[in-house]
Design a protein around this nucleic acid. Sequence first.
RNA 1: GCCGCUAUCGUCUAGGGGACUAGGACGCCGGAUUCUCAGUCCGGAAACCGGGGUUCGAAUCCCCGUAGCGGUACCA
Length: 460
Amino acid sequence: MTAARPPRLRFAPSPTGALHIGGARTALYNWLAARHDGGELVLRIEDTDRERSTEENWEQIVDALEWLELDWDEGPVSQFGRAERHRRALARLLESGAAYRDAATAKDVEAWKAERGAGAGYRGTPSDEPGAAVRLRVPDAGETVVEDLIHGPVAFPNASYDDFVIARGDGTVLYNFAVAVDDAEMGITEVVRGDDHLSNTPKQLLVLAALGHEAPRYAHLPLLHGPDGKKLSKRHGAASVQELREAGYLPAAVRNYLALLGWGTDDDTTLMPTAELVRRFRVDDVGKAAAIFDEKKLRWLNGRYMRELPLEDYVAAVARHLGREPDERLREACAIAQEKAQTLDEVWPLIRFLFEPPVDDPKSWQKVMRPGVEEPLAAAREALGDVEPFAPEPIEAALAPVLERFELKPGRLYQPIRVAITGSSVSPGIFESLAALGRADSLARIDEALVRLRSAKLDE
RNA sequence: GCCGCUAUCGUCUAGGGGACUAGGACGCCGGAUUCUCAGUCCGGAAACCGGGGUUCGAAUCCCCGUAGCGGUACCA
């Protein structure tokens, strides 16, 4: 047994819109780290910027996490809702002299810096003016070191940091202050977040030190980039969790894929169910380099998960995605399509012919309904009329003599049948498709195709 | 500008001084499965950013450069 207490982590997104894939990965890593050690996960929404925080954005985050099936033990906690505690901490710093009021504006700070030369951290002058912001005193000498779980120790010279603003003139606090106070007061032991916070960490460490709090352990995750190597944005296709859901991906596959983006095992296992992820994941093993989100691999992984799903679950997932009832017909349709789709989105085109008339696809028709198909197709129709029972194997057996009689390669007969009953040259296995459609509909559709074939001939 | 992070096939990665003729996965190319597509199976092409060091030996350690990224707000 290890001496370490179970860790307490937090996922702390700002409610500025849909949860991005990068945010989702951060959430997943926090969740995995917490579950791996039997720790706790707190969901805290960083909403101290009132203008950018809307209720709708809150819901989007919660909704995304729920879809990903990532649960939390506490929250969602509103950071803004902890304002009173922030005020108390602020008062303490003001009293001890660790922080001071300064009336300088951004312009003043700029001027100050222009005078001292680049690189010098701003140092203000205490003021009693009403509306003055509160700044933290940053030491001129020495450095602040972040002992990062992923990067190792990273040193930042104190002189390069401004006496930064921790509270606005109106008394509301700023991010770097609120985060430090909350992490400490909420008993957070491990902070796992994006790399973009690494250079902010010294500020938080300084706040923690001024307050006399112990610092949590930090792990800064490399950022995720789009296929062009740039920071992930809306331009990169499915960039949010919601878009992933709409594109027909399975939560379990997304978790597996996301886990592998920046983290790997020494044996390079790729397919890892969530339980295995929980068992093997360690933040310390996360890589340092930014990764690019590659939807191709996600598709492949998703296909693997789709095929391994028990039929009941598969039907349920497809029904939910299509907004249909998981009835017997859908169940039958899923049974013949499961091997073929990589995303839930790809299922409907394959099974559509079981619910609607054949699609009108001129390309398929032209490619397959060449001169000479009429006779064998008519023969196939006759053979199909006598099949008993109307099931895959008997159907195949009934069609074999037609193949022989016309000396056709299988595709020469099956493709026309496929186009006749589905309208498309792509479908599940032809025998399964016929059986699922049923004898009456199958024959009727082949008849219609024959009529169309004959009238086309007359037109020539 | 200043401060910081990062750098292995197209992509995700393994590898952390000799086991590297640099391994796996996705993707790609070719072949097989004599019903399409998908799947599956087999085979193939494909990488240590550049330059200096340290060392008997460097993808691995150090330095410089280059590139990418992040921070530098009374945003988060």
